[in-house]
Amino acid sequence: MAMVCGIVAAVIAVILILWLVLAYNNLVSLRNRVANGWAQIDVALKQRADLVPNLVATVQGYATHESKVFEEVTKARAQAVEAAGNANLTREDRAAIEARLTQALVQLRAVAENYPQLQASQNFMSLQQQLASLEDKIAYARQFYNDVTLKYNNATQQIPSNIVASLFHFEAAQYFKAPESAANVPTVSFS
């Protein structure tokens, strides 16, 4: 009887250890996917920031008296580039900075609407297409990141994997949320 109890105890111990390893590996995998999702957002935001000077220069060639808009776009871009290199910023802070750049770009596009020659410029049209493509990539990357963050946070908070998460100090990840002010961005048409 003692031998059977020993075997049962050993089987239970092996099952618990196996579960612990699997739960830990799942949490590590999800945490890494969250980090990868953030890296994809970061790459797309850097590409957008790199495109902004060309867009500003193109519009500036046609609309030289719109210096305030150009200054705002340049300042917002500089803040976005600086934020990209600052690991101490929260994701909410980064989202707010990126939202300011988005708003400045909307203002720049609104200025561009007043210049039909600019609208017809091949360079401007190409930059607009590139920017639209990047905005789509950014939106997709944010959605992917937030979806993976949801899975990871669920795993760190739901029983029984929350036990492993607390044992090994897995912290909840932050969602990439646009600030409330981003909801007030005006719509601009390029028709």
Rank of each mutant, 00 (worst) to 15 (best):
F190M: 14
Q129R: 15
A35M: 12
A44V: 07
N153M: 08
Q157N: 14
Q157S: 15
T102P: 06
R33G: 07
N32M: 11
A165R: 10
A13W: 04
Q107F: 07
Q122C: 02
Q47G: 13
A104D: 00
A96R: 08
R91V: 11
L30V: 06
Q158W: 00
L134K: 12
I12L: 15
P179N: 06
V69G: 01
R91H: 09
E92G: 11
F170M: 08
L16T: 09
A9K: 03
V8G: 09
N154Y: 09
A87Y: 10
L150V: 15
V148G: 00
L89K: 07
L22Y: 08
W38R: 14
A44R: 08
E66T: 01
A84Y: 09
L134I: 14
L51I: 03
A96Y: 03
I12R: 05
G61F: 06
E171T: 10
V34E: 06
Y140H: 13
Q47F: 06
A120Q: 14
L51E: 08
L22A: 14
A35S: 14
M1I: 07
G6W: 13
A49V: 00
A165L: 08
R77E: 07
N88R: 10
S181L: 08
E180G: 10
T64R: 08
L51N: 10
V106F: 05
L89W: 04
T74H: 09
L30W: 04
D50K: 10
A9V: 15
F70H: 07
Y145I: 08
M125C: 03
Q79I: 00
T156H: 10
A83I: 00
V34Q: 05
Q143D: 12
L30D: 09
I12Q: 03
Q174C: 01
A110G: 11
A80V: 03
A183M: 13
A178K: 12
N114F: 04
Q47K: 14
T149I: 06
A141N: 12
A23M: 02
Y62C: 04
E180S: 14
A155Q: 11
V111W: 00
L18N: 11
L18G: 15
R91P: 01
